[in-house]
Nucleic acid binder design. Structure first.
Lengths: 323, 323
DNA sequence: ACCCTTGTGGCCAGGATGTGACCGCAAGGA
DNA sequence: TCCTTGCGGTCACATCCTGGCCACAAGGGT
């Protein structure tokens, strides 16, 4: 058998996390044990550390090195990864949206159609959070299509709904996608207007790479994120609430998720929580769910308004214990 | 250069989603264009479909086939995948927890320590949902360690806190991890008690594979999930609420996330939503967040109780508009 | 219609290398 | 202590890989 294919097979066998005996491997690969040893050597030279045990029950196993070996995934695993990346890119996990999307684009690129359908089905059936509904969401496949065009330096055509609702068709050289809060923006060179533009991804429809490649222009900003920030002028509103928790600081640190906000001691038995978030609704909800119950010390007007709305809603629901 | 390494390099180049000219590739790989052609052939024979364009600006690019090629990830992408899988395995996405965990174990296995630290840091900084606090959570690394022991058929030692709070040290042959709702269970053969047991992962500490391998015994049940269900006897409580939405069925279908529950028409302009969930708290919260506001028709007592609690909490917070 | 670019694949010759067999050896486990 | 299992050197043989050359096909542009 072809050595290349064999090395790949070997790698995939070793990745299943178990010990493999030399004879076992040589059987599987259809070569002599001596060749297996040589192949293992080859892998080591390529930078993939293979641990080895001698004596009875000895064998080989792949361990962690300094580089990541090519991951050989089976179908289920690939689907799980794609779904995980989708939720992460959708804003479920802050801070890595863009990288997640990039990885997703890479995976999607080579994902057999059959599996892609499975991913779609799963993602649709599970969605992500209830609160997504408030913020216009962007279908993952649109994101991926645009990300691929960015990466492939391929001209992109799409429909765009301007803020005033008028639609238009655009042709751009896509530069980069930027996640900001729960929103996605595309930074691109607009070929019809001969200028840099930012597009809100939730207003963009039917993206279609026309296959024409281009050489990237230089963006008149430090990086794409900076450009978006500058284009938006106003930084997104941060909302804030100050609460007092009936817990000493160390216990509060354990119990309050770090992303909620920052904690400071307020005497030996109480802790102040300065919670911040882009969305007042979300902030109000999370405050309500705090355990143990906190008391509100201060908050921005929007948060107060949101709490009032929330109260009204809960009242309406709770008011009919057995309607 | 070694052909194997070259093929791997080629694969990684093609995975970056762009066209690569033949000369470009031959430069990069340090071989003649003729050899590049042969290598591309080789890849095709291995089952990885390489699209090709001829004429001016022609070149090669990897496309989707029926199998997944080995994924060659850079550091950031690997981290993004690991983080995504963690949240998916943690119950963020229902239905694929076990597969996610399996994939995570595979990745973690080969993840360089440096990257593993980055994943830990990121995961810690972002956590997942607020509500996790209610249900005792299982650290991802514990899950991964146990999953790897299952896969590697390796004896596992760990500390376990029984329901009555007494701790003990166990030595088992781990069989499989099962996700059930938001809880994880380990099905294993207890070597000290000579019997099958299920362990709640949130009560398990310091899992440690001692390197002793075993040959799997046969589980006295159809599969591990069935065994857990049977061991738990009682199915987990489902809670339910019936609501009426001021929307026709088709519009409601668009706006209400599918996982919330099932929709049925209630006249031409209203829709009934039968929302179900394992956790009454979560159910209460999501109902409150429904847009447009729904009216509660009926619900299990726990949901009512939870709504009352929620109302009290919101009242407390909202009661001091400017304390 | 014509030309240019770029991938295709056959053929050849020479050299590199992959392979299995055999060996004595080292390192664990029982 | 013995047995198992991996290690790596050497050898001979067959295989293949490589680069160079070629006539050809398929796009794109003029």
């Amino acid at each position: 058998m072809d050595p290349t294919a064999r090395i790949l097979r070997l790698l995939s066998l070793l990745q299943t996390y178990r010990h493999w005996g030399g004879d076992e491997l040589s059987d599987r690969l259809g070569v002599s044990p001596r060749t297996v040893r040589r192949d293992v050597d080859r892998l080591r030279e390529l930078g993939y550390p293979v641990d080895t045990t001698r004596g009875t029950g000895g064998g080989y196993r792949l361990s962690a090195g300094t580089r990541i070996p090519p991951l050989l995934l089976d179908d289920d695993e690939a689907v799980a990864i794609a779904v995980g990346l989708r939720t992460a890119a959708g804003g479920g996990v802050t801070g890595i949206e863009e990288t997640s999307l990039q990885a997703l684009a890479k995976l999607q690129q080579v994902l057999p159609p059959k599996l892609r359908r499975r991913v779609d089905a799963l993602a649709e059936a599970t969605e992500t959070t209830v609160f997504r509904g408030r913020e216009p969401s962007v279908p993952a496949d649109v994101l991926v299509a645009v990300a691929q065009a960015c990466r492939g330096q391929e001209q992109l055509r799409f429909g765009y709904a301007a803020a005033d609702g008028t639609g238009s068709s655009r042709l751009v050289e896509p530069h980069r996608l930027v996640a900001r809060g729960r929103r996605w923006y595309l930074v691109a060179w607009d070929l019809q207007r001969d200028a840099w533009r930012t597009f809100r991804m939730d207003r963009l429809t039917g993206p279609f790479g026309n296959g024409v490649r281009f050489t990237p222009r230089e963006l008149p900003a430090e990086d794409a994120a900076a450009y978006v920030a500058q284009a938006l002028r106003a930084v997104p509103q941060r909302h804030e609430a100050l609460l007092s928790l009936p817990l000493p600081l160390d216990r509060a640190t354990e119990r309050v998720p770090r992303w909620l906000g920052e904690l400071t001691a307020d005497g030996p038995d109480r802790t102040l929580l300065r919670a911040t978030n882009d969305s007042p609704e979300w902030l109000a909800i999370t405050l309500t769910m705090l355990e143990p119950e906190a008391t509100l010390v201060d908050a921005t007007p929007e948060v107060h308004a949101e709490l009032a709305t929330l109260r009204r809603k809960v009242d309406r629901l709770a008011a009919r214990p057995a309607a």
